[in-house]
Design a protein around this nucleic acid. Sequence first.
DNA 1: GAATAGTATTCAGTTATAAAGAACGAAGAG
DNA 2: CTCTTCGTTCTTTATAACTGAATACTATTC
Lengths: 253, 253
Amino acid sequence: MADPKYPVRTVGRTFEILEIIQELDGAGVSEIAARVDIGKSAVHNHLTTLENYEYVDKDGDEYHIGLSFLGLGAYARNRTPIYDTAQSQVDELADETGELVNLLVEKNGKGIYLYQSKGENAVELDTHEGKRVRLHCTGLGKAILAFRSDETVDEIIADQGLPELTPQTITDRDAFDAELEEIRDQRYAVDREERLNGLRCIAAPITDDSDRSIAAISVACPVHRVDDDRFYEDLPEAVLGAANVIELEYNYS
Amino acid sequence: MADPKYPVRTVGRTFEILEIIQELDGAGVSEIAARVDIGKSAVHNHLTTLENYEYVDKDGDEYHIGLSFLGLGAYARNRTPIYDTAQSQVDELADETGELVNLLVEKNGKGIYLYQSKGENAVELDTHEGKRVRLHCTGLGKAILAFRSDETVDEIIADQGLPELTPQTITDRDAFDAELEEIRDQRYAVDREERLNGLRCIAAPITDDSDRSIAAISVACPVHRVDDDRFYEDLPEAVLGAANVIELEYNYS
DNA sequence: GAATAGTATTCAGTTATAAAGAACGAAGAG
DNA sequence: CTCTTCGTTCTTTATAACTGAATACTATTC
């Protein structure tokens, strides 16, 4: 995390280029060179090298992210202890509710979607596996923070702040602490359009045997389709049930 | 594919290091330096830079592949056109059969597992999403090759050969061509322990509207548990059914 | 069909930088 | 307590990455 004493600039540039390609959904040499601080011949050299290693695909004059990253990504995910036990439960919950179900873990103060399963009526969202999100504005993130030490929460908020993403985002520190307290009480978190207008979620933490969160699981659904009864009654029960099964399997087997 | 005229060596080294970390399932500086042709201080510089960009995690003195790759990997997978339509069918087939179901695509003459779904009794294997395999020794690979032009098959075999992985692997070119012919006839391929002893599969190609394969789907099961009746009667039907649904959705919607 | 305006590539020169290698510090084994 | 072993720091140097201009494509427009 701390700045490296002797950074290898080329490594940084390589990943900058890759992230630009992803962001632009495919890009050419000049397009990339305009965004990264090196000339286009240098960018060209990077890209042909990456292509040689099969980490990017060349399609005409456009370069794209290669499937080789799936190997590294899936490997990293499989190494994450909770993934193995949680996956089938996430699938089942998606089946049961018909909605979009997410599994999130925390890394360096941010959330990373580890797995996602789409029920029959699942909303189409900007989230995808591997995506990073701020913790304070999602049900998942709040559920995770509620079951971490006060010091950890302090650190993360000091680092990340409480930026407003929608009018409903909690941006006040005291209000946020009260929210975490409530989540600890009821053992699940509610996201009332705090990250995205029109979207709300019910999320539950998955904790280890000392009640520290290691992940969170959520059901996300559009405000207009799912009424309050179902949202506030049925979903919490379903989500808590799934979280519980995962915890049991994870901690006692 | 052709060697780059002006390669950026550092890019290659970076991915060599990452692949070593993956292979060793986590590694320290000296361990990596021993395998890559640079000194340990240089390796150290690489690793701290990668850590800074969150592409590796440091755990004590061991470095591990970071979850950030999941973002790139999942993105690349989502960009693959067949993935979206095939995923739910793969899941369903896994549910139905209780076995391990795989989806493979071809890239540069090799196969890449795009998606995998575990049924209730699924075998535990060395395959995982993103893994590369040779095409000639799996049902999936043979199904894909059977629905490509002769020239393409020639090129790929010239490039990759027909190396023997088990006593059952087809290593003779003429026998391989006959096998492809048979697959074209019955529209599914059988892997009789050709890649891994004790494992056999039924695989069907997924073709576009001009009957060129774009992927293949398979059910894999252990020889000792699944008897011939089920293997040669029930499974082909199930796999062909799933492939058919995917083709319909993919080509006509 | 020529001209033009975008691209991607190539290439030689320059300079920034990645790597070597030795030294230091910390941690663990015998 | 000494002897390894490993990670980290630091300087020096050779190298390899980048610049910037030239060239080669390719598509579009007149």
